[in-house]
Design a protein around this nucleic acid. Structure first.
Lengths: 230, 230
DNA sequence: CCAAAAGTGTTTCAATTACACCCATGA
DNA sequence: TCATGGGTGTAATTGAAACACTTTTGG
């Protein structure tokens, strides 16, 4: 090859979200090494030479949570490559958004002094800066999650493999911070095509009358169209 | 630094779309050098050491079309990093989606033997493979564009700086391949909050009664919500 | 029995559709 | 004047919101 291209390091960073105790939380790790030593940051790491981006995200997820085969929905968020976003060297990072049901407590990894689920309300108020450009990445992840609840079945990602309509409604109410009418919500989601798949089982774990248990269906969109063919 | 990370080359690739002669078209360049010499590919190139990703996309756009300050809407599509997607070396590419009004004929660049607007209908039918993983990237771009027309003002990106309601309708009809009711379409888009901004001017360039000219407004979403707070 | 959550039915209201009709221009 | 696209009015239909009410459990 005649031309030698510029080189970069490539990382994946994870915006991992879950709902704990009625609050939307993100996973943060405390950096054990420079730069930004002692500051909180998003979990992530270098992509290996023989590794696809998605595979790197899955590997980091397993390493940072300490568990394999977590029921986590992972999707690419976007990439960030401002020239000096890492003060040491050129690093382009591919950020992933991950959603899971109430996940186990994280374990501190090799380069992390600590790892913790942090409520989103404490992250958007400006207190406690994050390392690198991670505050912006996290804000983008939260915005994406909130927006996609509205027109995709993403909310099911916050639920256990099987869940009740009431549990699904709680996800919306927590992420959006609003109250929804339980009766109209029930009708809406059970009527929506391929959104939910009934299991035949019921549970009474939430008190009251036992509720039907559902799995997430095959639908990828549930938006009412703004324009329709004539 | 104790640890030496793996290195990659980082490129940006562009899925540039426009509408020409009633057809949705993408810009392709014919490769003048190995690998995939002679095959068609998406325009793109290496991100420079001191350059942000968005800046690299803008620069490539100017280089590939031969013109500056084009009224093109550019947004990140997603990143692709399969280990051997480039047979020479590890390359992670950040793909951008760009939409513009009927754009000028492209000029062949330094590493391109030819450059051409190609109808989308010829691209999705399997004939004529593209270099690298560009067929998949292009398909993702087309899907994203089609989907975003539905709930964002993206369609205005295909229009000139000022445009009529009928021209905007043609965009939808071309990209989706359906007919829309002109009268209801008119009401819909002129009623939508902040979608269009009237200029006071009219034009009769499309024949018939002169039509009001609009600029795109400030709205970023125009979706009817699937769920609303109680 | 009571409280609590699940789920259904029904009225009211808002949005969308389908389509009749009028308007302003060029040829 | 006719053809063409632009634009408004309106009745019928569909969908959403509000809320009364019944169901089924645990305590």
């Amino acid at each position: 090859m005649a031309y030698e291209p510029p080189w970069s390091a490539v990382t994946v960073d994870l915006v991992l979200l879950t709902i704990r105790a009625g609050e939307l939380c993100a996973l943060l790790v405390r950096r054990a090494i420079a730069p930004f030593r002692g500051l909180w940051a998003l979990p992530g790491g270098f992509v290996q030479p023989d590794e696809d981006l998605d595979a790197a995200a899955v590997r980091e997820l397993a390493e940072e949570t300490g568990l394999q085969d977590l029921p986590v929905h992972l999707e690419q968020l976007r990439s960030y490559g401002a020239p000096w976003r890492d003060p040491r060297l050129r690093v382009v990072t591919v950020a992933y958004l991950g959603l899971g049901p109430d996940l186990p407590d994280p374990v501190a990894g090799s380069d992390a002094a600590d790892a913790r689920w942090t409520p989103a309300s404490k992250l958007t108020d400006g207190r406690g800066r994050l390392a690198f450009d991670h505050a912006g990445i996290l804000a983008d992840g939260l915005e994406r999650a909130r927006a996609k609840l509205e027109y995709t079945p993403l909310a099911t990602g916050f639920c256990a493999p099987t869940f009740t309509v009431g549990e699904l409604r709680e996800v919306y109410e927590t992420v959006w911070g609003v109250a929804l009418d339980p009766r109209n919500f029930h009708r809406k989601v059970t009527t929506a095509e391929d959104l939910l798949e009934g299991t035949g089982e019921t549970t009474s774990r939430n008190g009251g009358r036992p509720a039907m248990l559902y799995r997430r269906g095959t639908a990828e969109m549930m938006m009412p169209p703004m324009l329709r063919p004539a």
